[in-house]
């Protein structure tokens, strides 16, 4: 098996307000023997600026790829947006010689050159493809047996298929398998692969809340006790904004939203405190009590 060593790309949303994801991811990675190297320098993956300037997005993403290339490390991200963007740019620049020349022309100004020698992995892709389900399963000490959850993949870990090429975007099963190896049951529900809506919350705060509300309703309908996410942006939509959705629609959800790494961490035997459960907006105490964690 290849060495499990990656350059960790944190992105912007996690350090800004979703530290529970980082805390739990680092714990879980350590347990699995994954070595995470910090970025020597950081800049945004470029995704939020794509609507303003496609060239700037390409260049910012490529700059991060170059920094990882210099250290001969593959990139691992916790954010699906960062993963999707850098995967897409990595692939496009490798395939499109003209575009690569253009971007390298920009990067030259800062002494960098994109070569296309590394890979970009999202957390769940790394877990499923590089670490392997069996090896993860072997670290489970406290199976989360009675627990029933629902999953939300996040668009950019699945689509566009042409660039991502991971799992089946119409019927994704990898995250479900990762969840079920913890002993928790992962339930099917309506419109599982639907977007959380978060990317447009800065221009329209009505539609994203409607979308998120619909998802929460769908997972409540099947009796899920928690929603499991693998993206800080999606997490923000369902956790941070859940009380706002409750107020706007005069409904009550109270559905804890966990990062996959928190769920796995619990099964590995870490305490909720070690996994940043205190940072969650929607209280998960009831769920934790039931698990005896």
């Amino acid at each position: 098996m290849a060495e499990l060593k990656y350059m960790l790309f944190l992105g912007c949303v996690i350090p800004y307000r979703i530290s529970s994801y980082e805390i739990s991811a680092r714990k879980v990675a350590e347990k699995l023997g994954i070595e995470l190297v910090e970025m020597p320098e950081f800049n945004c993956c470029g995704l939020p600026l794509d609507p303003v300037s496609h060239d700037m997005m390409l260049t910012l993403a490529a700059r991060n790829l170059c920094l990882a290339e210099q250290q001969k490390l593959n990139i691992m991200t916790l954010c699906t947006g960062c993963a999707g963007t850098m995967r897409k740019v990595n692939m496009t620049l490798k395939e499109d010689k003209k575009l690569k020349e253009k971007v390298n022309g920009y990067l030259k100004e800062t002494g960098l050159e994109f070569k296309g020698t590394i890979k970009v992995r999202h957390l769940i892709q790394m877990l499923a493809e590089d670490v392997g389900l069996e090896r993860i399963k072997a670290t489970v000490q406290k199976p989360l047996n009675p627990l029933k959850v629902a999953e939300h993949n996040g668009c950019h870990v699945l689509r566009p298929t042409k660039y991502i090429g991971f799992d089946d975007p119409e019927n994704p099963t990898i995250l479900k398998n990762l969840i079920e190896l913890t002993g928790a049951k992962c339930l099917d529900y309506m419109d599982e692969t639907e977007c959380c809506g978060a990317p447009i919350i800065g221009v329209n705060d009505v539609i994203p809340l409607q979308l998120a509300r619909e998802k929460l309703n769908h997972i409540m309908a099947v009796g899920a006790q928690a929603l499991v996410t693998v993206c800080p942006f999606c997490h923000m939509m369902y956790d941070l904004h859940q009380s706002r959705i409750e107020r706007a629609f005069n409904e009550k959800f109270g559905i804890p939203v966990l990062h996959y790494t928190q769920l796995l961490g619990l099964a590995m035997g870490f305490s909720p405190d070690e996994l940043g459960f205190k940072e969650l907006r929607v209280n998960a105490t009831k769920l934790l009590d039931q698990l005896g964690s």
């Binding site: 794509d50 609507p51 668009c155 692969t193 990317p199």
Partner: peptide
């Protein structure tokens, strides 16, 4: 045009 969430569906 600013309402697309880039979900790529």
């Amino acid at each position: 045009i600013w309402l697309c969430a880039a979900c790529f569906t």
